[in-house]
Amino acid sequence: MKTAAYLRRFGISGRGLVVALPYLWLLLFFVVPFVIVLKISFSDIDLAIPPYKPLLEWVGKNSLAIKVDFNNYAFLFTDRLYINAFLNSIKVAFISTVLCALVGYPMAYGIARSKPATRNLLLLLVILPFWTSLLLRVYAWIGLLKANGVINNVLIWMGVINEPLTLLYTPFAMYVGIVYSYLPFFILPMYANLEKMDWQLLEAAEDLGCRPWQAFYKITLPLSRNGILAGSMLVFIPAVGEFVIPALLGGPNALMIGRVLWDEFFSNRAWPVASAVAILLLILLVPFMMWYQSVQARESAGAR
C-alpha cells in the first residue's frame, strides 16, 4: 500500500500502468521502427555501413545541417517499375480477396449452419494449418504443382492430359498459394458474423414469398456485409505486401511490391529507396485499415 501511495504521488497508478502497456508496446515496436524507416527514406544512399548518409550533420563547430532528400520518393514515380509493382500488388491482392470470399463465404456459411458439435471440429480444421510453418506449407504446394508433382501425375494417370501442365511459377500457382494461405483469415471473421445470424429471418422471408435463393440475396447477404468487409480487409491488407508466396510459387514475372522491397534492400543495398517503398505502401494501406476498423466497430456495436 505504501509503495502504491508513493507512486501515486508521481501520477502513477495501477490502472495507468495497465493502460500504458499497449501504448508502450506500440511505441517500442511500431513508432520507433517507423520513425527510423521514415528517417532512412529521406536520406542519401552511401557506400558505407549502414548504406545511407545521416540526416543531421555537424558542419563547422556550431551549426547542425539537416538534409532531407525527397529524391527517393520522386524516383519511385519516375521509374515505371515501382508504380507497376504497386498496381500489380493491388491487383493480385484484390483478385486473391475476391477468390477468398468466393471460397470462404460458402465454407463459413456451411460451418455456421452445421450442428454446434460439428462446428467446433470444422473451425479447428480451418485453423489447423497454422500449426505448420507458412514456408513449409508453401513448399508443399511446390511438390503438388511441379511438372512431375502430384497433380500432374494424377491427371496423366487418369488420362485427362498426356503432357504435364506448367502449373508452378505461374500466376495460377501464386493465386493458389495466396488463397490457400489467407483463407482462414476470411473464414474466421465471416463465421463470427454468420454465427450471430437469426436464421428465423430466412423462414420469415420464405413465409412472405421469397424462394430460398431470394431470401439469401435479400436477407443473409446484406446482413453479413460487415463480415464480408472484415474478412476481405484481413486478406487484402497483408496480401498487398506479400513476399514469400509470389517469390516461391509465382516465378520471375510476379512483380509485387514486397519483392521490389526485398530486391532494393538486399540486392541493391538501396536502403533509402526501400524505405520510401515501405512508407508509401503503409500510406496506401492506411485507408483500408481505417475502413476495417470502422467496420469492426460497427460490428461490435451490433448495429447493422
Binding site: 437469426d198 428465423q200 429471418l201 423462414e203 420469415a204 422471408a205 420464405e206 413465409d207 412472405l208 414469398g209 421469397c210 424462394r211 436477407i219
Partner: peptide, 16 residues
C-alpha cells in the same frame, strides 16, 4: 412456405 396462402407471425417476430 412461399407458395402457401398462409402467413406466420414468429415468436421472435423475426423482423428484418
Amino acid at each position: 412456405p412461399y407458395e402457401r396462402p398462409v402467413n406466420m407471425m414468429f415468436q421472435s417476430y423475426a423482423l428484418f
